[in-house]
Design a protein around this nucleic acid. Structure first.
Length: 577
RNA sequence: CGGGAUGUAGCGCAGCUUGGUAGCGCACUUCGCUUGGGACGAAGGGGUCGCAGGUUCGAAUCCUGUCAUCCCGACCA
């Protein structure tokens, strides 16, 4: 491709509305342009990158025995009502009505549609297993789109769905996908970690996420997930799912009798522990959350943090958030109290179900709120002053240096970008939607399903996040929009132009994806642009051409060597041998 | 939805406090000059200052409302 023909506008400066490096660079280097909030145009260079990733995904999915198809982007409400998700998916589901006032939605995912496809098409165990996938734009009306392609509202996703006759089959399908995913990301030049994860609103039991780990000291927080991993045994999990062995801590408050003390202005655990001169680990923290619109209480040791997804799961909810101060006021009023956050306790709150984290079970002679401002109960014990809730669950956020439950070594934490995930769905959708087949024994059974997603556009952004320097993007060869760019330094020098053209044609003849910067620009502009857009190799034809030498530069390593034009061409051809 | 900020040319910004009818850099057009790391000179084109009201002789500037965008929390590929 000639740069004079390429639809490309690079910017001199970073866009002001971008925060993370992949967003800044993709806009500045002319790959994407925002159309509206969370929705981007993929310009020609970007589209080439996306197609490269798609093709790697296709090859590996096909090799894994999956079959590509394409489902509609617009879906009827009826299917979502069948699965029950029409009412629980929330506002991320973009709902609309057609001219007959029939309710529809833009596909955020395709479990419902694929399940309807399977129930129409698969009737016998002899047709199983099946794995169907598609690569398509998805739309989720995200609460807060951000970070460019890392969290758009419209994004490109590969989604696959497996159907098996039994759990064993699902295990196998799942394993095959896990292996395929490892190869896919590896081929995209991305190191990923497969981590255990919560299975969230999509439902099901087991799930793993593929995380691109981003450097903690990176100047941004492009990695939206915290990943905990064991330094020894390889255990790793998203923070929403990670578990650990609790570190030793003081659990006896040492108060020899139960009494109510004045604790003025102790709104936080820190203030309270300083005031009472006790460890925060002998305080029972009480928090009010809203799960699926219902108020619930959570008890956890004062030195620990509630993991909201775990809390939500403890109540089998779909949605969780902490209660606002106004809501707490309402709850207090309903039970005849008027305490504010910081003085809340589990005793006497009407119509609120509590869950206790495992950490509070051990507490003795501890400190707890009693729903009176500026007062706390000290020396409390379970079954005496305070009742331990029936519901006990792990709702604790793991902390760095907690011990691994598998091997006892230290857990570390790092930021990750989730580029893929795999779920064992089980029969959640097949049962709800009555998608059944006849098994060997003549019985009708629901399909055992799995689903497997890869964010194509996010993967591209993650690659930029992981591979760039102060001059621009450094694409991994496998997903670069072009392999090499040929740059004649001076557009006045006939020899340079002629040699550059010859190299360009030779590479084209060999089916190499090559750019030639034939623009009437000064050298600086062309070289800066070449670095910015991140083409892996650059052949620069300059003054040394009088000695029959050109410059061959590796964008990633910065290595530059002088070679003859023929050698330069050969070095590129060798990449593909 | 809560908290914070910002809307002025394609991009990056100034002007607003103290109202007088819009400017700078880059990009774009033409000419000259220049050609190994985002040159220089000259001459141009492009904006009803997010939108709607209001105050005023007069509003980018003051007031009210509204919309949009960005950042921090809940969503997730």
């Amino acid at each position: 491709m000639r740069m004079t023909n390429l639809f490309l506008q690079t910017l001199r400066e970073f866009p002001s509305d971008a925060e993370v490096m992949s967003h800044k660079l993709l806009v500045r280097a002319g790959y994407i342009r925002k159309l509206t909030n969370g929705v981007y145009n993929y310009l020609p260079l970007m589209w080439r990158v996306l197609k490269k990733i798609e093709n790697i995904v296709r090859e590996e999915m096909d090799n894994a025995g999956a079959q590509e198809m394409l489902m509609p982007f617009v879906q009827p409400a009826e299917l979502w009502q069948e699965s029950g998700r029409w009412d629980v998916y929330g506002k991320e589901l973009m709902r609309l009505k057609d001219r007959h006032n029939r309710e529809m939605c833009l596909g955020p995912t395709h479990e419902e549609v694929i399940t309807s496809v399977a129930r129409e098409g698969i009737h016998s165990y002899k047709q199983l297993p099946v794995n169907l996938y598609q690569i398509q734009s998805k739309f989720r009306d995200e609460i807060r789109p951000r970070f460019g392609l890392l969290r758009g509202r419209e994004f490109i996703m590969k989604d696959a769905y497996s159907f098996d006759a039994d759990e064993k089959g699902l295990d196998k399908s799942y394993e095959i996908m896990a292996e395929a995913y490892k190869r896919i990301f590896e081929r995209c030049g991305l190191e990923t970690k497969m981590v255990q994860s919560d299975s969230g609103a999509i439902g099901g039991s087991v799930s793993h996420e593929f995380m691109v780990l981003v450097n903690e000291k990176a100047e941004n927080n492009a990695g939206e997930n915290d990943v905990f991993y064991c330094t020894k045994c390889g255990y790793s999990a998203n923070s929403n799912h990670a578990v650990s062995i609790l570190k030793e801590a003081v659990t006896d408050g040492g108060f020899n009798k139960a009494e109510i003390l004045d604790t003025p202005n102790t709104h936080s655990i820190e203030e309270l522990s300083a005031f009472l001169k006790v460890s925060s680990s002998v305080i029972c923290k009480c928090l009010i959350y809203v799960v699926d619109g219902k108020y619930v209480g959570a008890l956890i040791r004062g030195d620990k943090t509630v993991e909201e997804t775990k809390l939500m799961n403890a109540f089998q909810g779909n949605d969780v958030r902490i209660a606002s101060s106004g809501e707490i006021e309402e709850i207090m009023a309903n039970s005849g109290f008027n305490a504010v956050a910081g003085f809340i306790g589990p005793e006497g709150l009407k119509n609120i179900e509590f869950v206790a984290d495992e950490t509070v079970k051990e507490l003795k002679n501890f400190v707890v709120g009693i729903n009176q401002n500026d007062k706390h109960l000290v020396g409390a014990n379970w079954g005496r002053e305070v009742q331990l809730p029936q519901k006990i669950a792990d709702i604790r956020l793991v902390e760095e240096n907690d011990k691994c439950t598998e091997c006892g070594s230290d857990l570390k934490v790092t930021k990750g970008i989730e580029v893929g995930n795999i779920f064992k769905l089980g029969t959640k959708y097949s049962k709800a939607m009555n998608a059944v087949f006849t098994d060997k024994d003549g019985q009708e059974k629901p399909f055992i399903m799995g689903c497997y997603g890869i964010g194509i556009s996010r993967t591209a952004a993650a690659a930029v996040e992981r591979h760039h320097d102060e001059y621009g993007i450094i694409w991994p060869l496998s997903i670069a929009p072009y392999t090499v760019t040929v740059v004649p330094v001076s557009d006045q020098d006939e020899t340079q132009l002629k040699v550059a053209e010859e190299i360009y044609k030779k590479l084209l003849d060999n089916k190499i994806e090559v750019l030639i910067d034939d623009r009437a620009e000064r050298a600086g502009v062309k070289l800066k642009d070449a670095d910015l857009i991140g083409i892996p190799y650059r052949i620069t034809v300059g003054k040394t051409i009088k000695d029959n030498l050109v410059e061959f530069k590796n964008r990633a390593t910065g290595e530059v060597i002088n070679v003859t034009p023929e050698e330069a061409v050969n070095k590129i051809l060798e990449l593909f041998n």
